[in-house]
């Protein structure tokens, strides 16, 4: 499923990185420890994290993750959004919890 379609279907708010929304989401990874994500997240994963500083964009770009989803309405720094725009890494915001987002993605067939 395309990042764009998944984002629209579960009502995620796109904050930056629209250029990257035509890539595929192939899985979901939830973690806030960056080195842990580096070790375990897979290419194409939607990464759900409450970390909002600019380095999350570097992690997502290096691993070629599908997108970053910030749960529970957490605000994202301007630096992060600028970098996401530059790198074409989609950053979404959701009012749902990490588990709530994961459930919605699962319902859409991302298993």
């Amino acid at each position: 499923m395309l990042v764009r379609d998944a984002g629209e279907k579960i009502g995620l708010k796109l904050l930056a990185g629209e250029a990257g929304t035509s890539r595929e989401i192939t899985g979901v990874y939830i973690c806030d420890l960056l080195s842990w994500v580096m070790a375990h997240a897979g290419k194409g994963d939607a990464w759900i994290t409450v970390q909002t500083h600019a380095n999350i964009v570097a992690v997502a770009a290096l691993l070629e993750l599908g997108c970053i989803i910030i749960p529970e309405g957490v605000e994202v720094e301007e630096d992060t959004l600028r970098k996401a725009e530059d790198e074409g890494v989609p950053v979404y915001q959701s009012g749902l919890s990490a588990y709530g987002i994961a459930k919605e993605l699962y319902r859409m067939g991302i298993e």
């Binding site: 960056l34 080195s35 070790a39 500083h53």
Partner: peptide, 15 residues
Amino acid sequence: EMGFGAGMGLPNMKR
């Protein structure tokens, strides 16, 4: 607090 310092830097490099 920024999510660094998990103690996985060198182990990740090794892996």
